[in-house]
């Protein structure tokens, strides 16, 4: 059954498609993260480990 199912999973176009989907998603993430307008927002988020200390409760 497993072997049978896998026999049909050798379509090279499918693999290529998955690869490019992967690549495009990744490039998308890079651009999204590096977009200029988000700079200050990310800087604020990057302070998370220190914030907890600053507002330390009693």
């Amino acid at each position: 059954m497993k072997q049978e199912a896998l026999k049909y999973f050798t379509n090279i176009n499918l693999i290529a498609f998955a690869f490019f989907l992967f690549l495009i998603t990744f490039i998308g993430i890079v651009f999204w993260t590096l977009r200029r307008s988000a700079k200050s927002q990310y800087e604020e988020l990057g302070r998370a480990p220190l914030r907890e200390e600053a507002n330390r409760g009693k």
Binding site: F26, I29, V30, T33, L34, A38, K39, Y42, E43, L45, G46, R47, P49, L50, E53
Partner: peptide, 21 residues
């Protein structure tokens, strides 16, 4: 490391890209 030196990470955006990559 940010805790030990009491500074935020050099670039938070780079860390996100580091992660996804």
């Amino acid at each position: 490391i940010p805790k030990a030196v009491n500074r935020p990470v050099y670039s938070y955006r780079l860390s996100i890209i580091h992660f996804w990559a």
